[in-house]
Amino acid sequence: MGFKLLSKLLVYLTASIMAIASPLAFSVDSSGEYPTVSEIPVGEVRLYQIADGVWSHIATQSFDGAVYPSNGLIVRDGDELLLIDTAWGAKNTAALLAEIEKQIGLPVTRAVSTHFHDDRVGGVDVLRAAGVATYASPSTRRLAEVEGNEIPTHSLEGLSSSGDAVRFGPVELFYPGAAHSTDNLIVYVPSASVLYGGCAIYELSRTSAGNVADADLAEWPTSIERIQQHYPEAQFVIPGHGLPGGLDLLKHTTNVVKAHTNRSVVE
C-alpha cells in the first residue's frame, strides 16, 4: 500500500471513529477524501466538511520552486461564519470567499490569524475590503508590521502568557507558548472536538522541520505538551499544512522538532 493511500485511509478511519463516538456532533463529509496538494491548482481553494458547521479550507501556493498546501478553518456561528487564517495570499483568499459563498452561503463576518507569517495573514486586506472584521493577538499584529505583512485590524486580548485561553464565538483560542513562531495560536472547536494546530503542528508525513527561522526550538516541545494537557479530548487535529489526523500529530511534531534540534547540535 502506497504512503499517500495509507495517509488518506488514516484520515478516513479517524473521521469514521469520530462519527461513531459522537453521532450528534459529527456529520463528516462523505463526498470524498481530504484534498491534497496535487489536486488543488494554485489560485483555487477546496472546502472539506469535518463536522456539522465545521470545515477546513485548503489552498496551495508556490514557494521556492515548489507547491505547498495550506489549511485553515471555518466555523459556523449562528447565521454567520468565523474564518481562521487566510488562504495564503490575496488571490487565494478572494477564491476562498467565493467558494464559501458557493458552498455554504453564509457571510464571513470575523477572521482570526493564528500567527504573523504570510500563509496566515496574506489576504487580510481582501477580507477587510469584503467587510470582514480581522483579528490577531497584539504580538501577531506587531510582528506582521515588522515583517511588512498585512496586519489584522483588531487585537485579541488575554493571550499574552503561555497557557492563556479565551473564548471567541464558537471557538476557544489558546496560546501554548512559542513553537513554530513566538505568537502562534491554537484554535479548538469544543462542539466538535476539532483542534486546529496551525503551523505549530505537523502532518504525519512530514519528517523535516522546514521553516524554523522564527521558531523557538527549545520551547516548542513544552508548548505541545500544554496543548495535549489542555485538549486531551480532541479527536480531529488539523495541521497548518497537509493531512489531518488525531492527537498523534502532536507527538510526531515533537519528535521531528527534537530530531532537528539534535542534528543542529551535532553539526
Rank of each mutant, 00 (worst) to 15 (best):
D216N: 12
P190M: 07
V124F: 06
H260V: 12
H252F: 04
S38V: 08
Y12H: 09
I224S: 02
G177R: 02
P170G: 06
L13T: 15
S113M: 04
A130N: 15
A259P: 09
R206G: 14
L9C: 15
E99A: 14
Q103E: 14
I58Q: 06
D79N: 11
L173K: 00
Q103A: 12
E172Q: 07
I151Q: 08
I186C: 02
S7L: 07
S27Y: 09
I201N: 06
T222D: 14
R110E: 08
V124T: 10
A95V: 11
S31V: 09
G240Q: 02
Q228A: 12
S155N: 13
S70N: 03
S22D: 13
G242D: 06
G89R: 01
C199T: 03
V108F: 01
P138D: 09
S56W: 15
A130M: 13
E233T: 11
P152F: 02
R263I: 13
A19Q: 15
F168M: 11
D183V: 02
H241K: 02
L9K: 15
N262M: 12
V112S: 03
T114G: 01
H230M: 14
S191L: 08
V187G: 02
S27D: 10
L73W: 01
T93N: 00
F168P: 03
T261K: 12
L83M: 10
D77Q: 03
N92I: 02
Q49S: 10
A90W: 08
V112G: 04
T254R: 12
L250P: 06
Q49I: 09
N184P: 01
I74Y: 05
P69S: 15
P170R: 05
F63E: 03
S31W: 10
I224N: 05
F174M: 13
S113G: 05
K8R: 10
N255F: 09
H117N: 00
S7A: 09
G210N: 02
D214L: 02
V45D: 05
L10I: 15
G163H: 05
L73E: 02
R76W: 06
L5P: 13
Q49A: 11
H252M: 04
G242T: 05
V67W: 11
S191A: 12
D125Y: 10
G122C: 07
A165M: 14
Q61E: 04
V132T: 07
A95W: 05
Q49M: 13
I100N: 01
T109I: 13
E150K: 06
G123R: 05
A136M: 04
S62E: 08
I201Q: 00
N262W: 09
S31F: 07
R226K: 07
S113Q: 03
P232L: 08
V75T: 03
G43I: 04
A218R: 12
H252N: 08
Y34C: 07
L156T: 04
M18N: 15
G158Q: 09
R206Y: 07
Q61D: 04
N149Y: 11
P138F: 08
L6F: 09
R120G: 05
R120E: 03
L195P: 05
D64Y: 15
P221H: 06
T36W: 14
L243S: 15
V126N: 04
E267D: 12
H260N: 10
T253D: 03
G2Q: 15
A192Q: 13
V126I: 08
T109V: 13
R46Q: 09
E33R: 11
D52K: 11
G2P: 14
V237M: 03
A66Q: 15
L156V: 09
F26W: 15
L143I: 14
G197E: 01
G210S: 04
G246T: 13
A136P: 05
L217N: 00
K258E: 14
L6H: 08
G122H: 08
V237E: 02
A19F: 15
L13W: 10
Y12N: 10
V187P: 04
M1Q: 06
I201P: 03
H252W: 03
T254Y: 12
G131K: 10
I238C: 03
G65V: 06
P239D: 00
F26Y: 11
P221V: 11
E150A: 03
F116V: 05
G177W: 03
A133Q: 14
V121Q: 00
V126L: 09
W88A: 00
A129Y: 12
D248A: 12
M18W: 08
W220M: 03
I100R: 00
P138N: 09
G65W: 05
Q228F: 05
A178E: 07
T153N: 09
S208L: 11
L204D: 12
A165W: 13
F63T: 05
A179P: 00
Y135V: 02
A218M: 12
L96R: 00
G198S: 06
S160R: 12
A111D: 02
T36M: 12
S193R: 14
G158D: 08
S27E: 09
S31Y: 11
E101M: 10
A59L: 04
H260Y: 09
L195G: 00
Y34F: 15
V112L: 11
A130L: 09
A215N: 03
V256I: 14
S38H: 10
V194H: 00
G32S: 09
T222F: 14
I17G: 14
S191I: 09
A21F: 14
S264N: 15
H230Y: 09
T253I: 05
P138V: 08
A178G: 12
S38P: 10
S22M: 14
K258Y: 10
G2E: 15
H180P: 02
H252I: 04
L97N: 00
R76F: 06
Y34D: 07
S30T: 13
P23V: 11
T253F: 03
L81K: 00
H180R: 04
S181G: 01
S70L: 04
E99N: 12
I100S: 02
L47H: 04
L204A: 14
G158C: 05
D52A: 11
G246D: 12
R110F: 06
A144C: 15
G158I: 03
A136R: 04
L24K: 12
H57S: 04
Q103R: 14
A209Q: 09
T93M: 00
C199Q: 01
P221A: 09
D85W: 00
H180Y: 07
V75C: 03
Y175A: 02
N149H: 14
L5Q: 15
S193F: 13
K102P: 07
Q235I: 10
Y48E: 13
S62D: 10
F63Y: 06
V212N: 07
A95I: 11
L81A: 06
L13F: 13
P69G: 15
A15W: 06
L47V: 13
L6S: 14
G246W: 04
Q49K: 12
V171E: 04
D183E: 03
H154F: 14
F63I: 07
G2C: 09
I224Q: 02
A213S: 13
E150V: 04
K4H: 06
K258P: 06
K258W: 09
G177D: 06
P232V: 07
K8Q: 09
V67A: 15
K251H: 11
C199K: 00
V37Q: 15
K8C: 15
V121A: 04
G246A: 09
H154I: 11
T114E: 00
V11K: 08
G65I: 06
A200R: 01
L204N: 10
M1R: 06
R167W: 13
A129L: 11
D64F: 15
A200E: 02
P221K: 08
P107A: 11
R46A: 09
V194N: 01
A90I: 07
A95S: 13
A178C: 04
T36N: 14
G210R: 05
G240S: 05
R46M: 14
N184T: 02
K102G: 11
T134K: 01
L185F: 05
P107E: 12
S30N: 13
M1K: 06
Q103F: 10
I50M: 09
S208M: 11
G123D: 05
A15E: 06
S137W: 03
G2M: 07
R142W: 11
V45G: 04
V257W: 04
Y202S: 08
M1S: 05
A111C: 08
Q228P: 07
A200M: 08
R46K: 10
V212Y: 04
G105I: 00
W220Q: 02
E267P: 13
P244G: 04
E233Q: 12
D52V: 11
A144Q: 04
S155C: 06
T222W: 12
Q61P: 05
L250A: 04
T253P: 03
R226S: 06
A19S: 15
L249T: 04
D125V: 06
K4E: 08
S70R: 02
L9S: 13
N92P: 01
E219R: 07
E225L: 12
S205C: 05
V187A: 12
S193D: 12
D214S: 08
V256N: 06
F3A: 07
A215V: 05
V256Y: 06
I151N: 06
V256L: 15
